[in-house]
Design a protein around this nucleic acid. Structure first.
Lengths: 143, 143
DNA sequence: AGTCCGGTGGGGAAAAGTGGGGGAGAGTGG
DNA sequence: CCACTCTCCCCCACTTTTCCCCACCGGACT
């Protein structure tokens, strides 16, 4: 299948679960994901296939720059391997939800090789005014 | 499965045992680990599969740089092969706990190919302010 | 209007984390 | 070679958390 596309407005229930949008489930049946906070304003969800090369590159970075150990350890410590339950839902631990500033409404956003989880309001404010500096590059890609 | 991820706040009981977090047990059923102190501020726990290449590289280093012998001997002398008991717990000898500065509360941290055991407070102080020098590298890995 | 499918909500069984008693085995000294 | 001690690990027990399962609801397509 092609990369993840689209955005879906879903609820996080009292137990901290949200339903993975049906289009994102196809091709990842009963597969595991890696849930991690890379950016301050969102959570990222990597399917196993996308995560593997990331992991390999992280280990390569540690080998070449041992001083990066603490930075990477902080990332992996706050990451988590998650599985969809039989209803296709994913559990976000409360600590993660709070740290990423997410409430009980989230926007599940397709980002090609991964999925991002945003606060809907914040997502609007971050994307409604795109930087025109990149327009020519983007234009040429789509030409 | 993918590498070790996540952090878990566990107790070390009066006998010096701590429960290996359930996610870290999967895939290593009744496997043995190597417990070793590589860094000053934490203990490292290598599953057998991750330990093998480390051992090979240590032997290779001794052959090429015999002067490193004493340093490596110091490491292997204080390392230890450990097994989980039937309850999935691992015993840390008191000497090791003291040398690594661990109390009766520990943070079990996933670090991809290995597991690290930290004092919770110390871990927070070492990782809460990541070095921005590595941000560009890390950004590009997760892009 | 009925049926299917995707999203939402909660009860309850199973597992995870924690604590401690006691027997088997290794190490030590007589 | 025996007796004593100490450590380790198995077993049992209890509490909390996790997640599996069932049920409901609403919209879309037939």
């Amino acid at each position: 299948m092609s990369g993840y596309l689209g955005s879906f407005h879903h609820q996080v229930d009292a137990k901290g679960r949200f339903a993975l949008p049906a289009p994102f489930r196809r091709g990842s049946e009963s597969e595991s994901f890696v849930l991690i906070q890379i950016h301050e304003d969102a959570l990222s969800l990597y399917p196993h296939a996308s995560w593997r090369p990331v992991e390999a590159e992280l280990r390569e970075l540690i080998r070449r720059q041992p001083e990066a150990r603490a930075s990477i350890l902080g990332l992996t410590a706050s990451a988590l391997e998650v599985l969809t339950d039989k209803q296709g839902r994913i559990l976000i631990p409360d600590r993660m939800r709070e740290r990423a500033g997410l409430g009980h409404e989230v926007l599940i956003v397709g980002a090609l090789n991964k999925i991002e989880i945003w606060d809907p309001e914040r997502f609007r404010s971050r994307t409604e005014v795109p930087d025109p500096k990149f327009d020519p590059f983007i234009e040429s890609i789509f030409a």
